[in-house]
Amino acid sequence: MSQTLLYTKLHIPPPRPKLVLRTSLIEKLNGGLHRKLTLLSASAGFGKTQLVSQWLTTCKRPVAWVSIDEGDNDSSRFLSYLAAALQSIGANMEEGLFRALQSPHPPPAASVLILLINEVSSMPHPFVLVLDDYHLIDADPVHDALIFLIEHLPPQMHLVITTREDPPLPLARLRARGQLTELRAADLRFTLSEAAAFLNQTMGLNLSPDNIALLESRTEGWITGLQLAAISMEGLHDATSFIKSFTGSHRFVLDYLVEEVLHKQSERVQTFLLHTSILDRFCAPLCDAVMRLAPSSSSEETLKQLELANLFLVPLSPSLC
Rank of each mutant, 00 (worst) to 15 (best):
R16S: 15
P17V: 14
G47S: 01
A44F: 14
K48G: 01
A42M: 07
L10D: 10
L39V: 05
V66F: 12
R77F: 03
K48E: 07
C59L: 07
L10S: 11
V52C: 08
F46I: 06
H34F: 13
L19A: 12
F46G: 00
H11L: 15
R22S: 04
T38M: 12
Q50A: 11
D74Q: 11
R77Q: 08
G45D: 06
S67G: 14
I12M: 14
T49D: 07
T57V: 09
L37K: 04
S75A: 13
H34W: 14
G32W: 01
N73E: 07
E27M: 07
I12F: 11
S24L: 09
K36F: 08
L25Y: 08
D69L: 03
I26Q: 08
P62S: 01
G32I: 04
G32C: 07
L37R: 03
I68R: 00
F46R: 01
T23P: 03
L29R: 04
R61G: 07
L10F: 13
K60A: 15
L40D: 04
Q54V: 02
G47T: 02
L19M: 12
T49V: 08
V52L: 03
R77G: 04
L39C: 02
V20L: 00
T38A: 12
V20E: 01
V66S: 03
P15C: 10
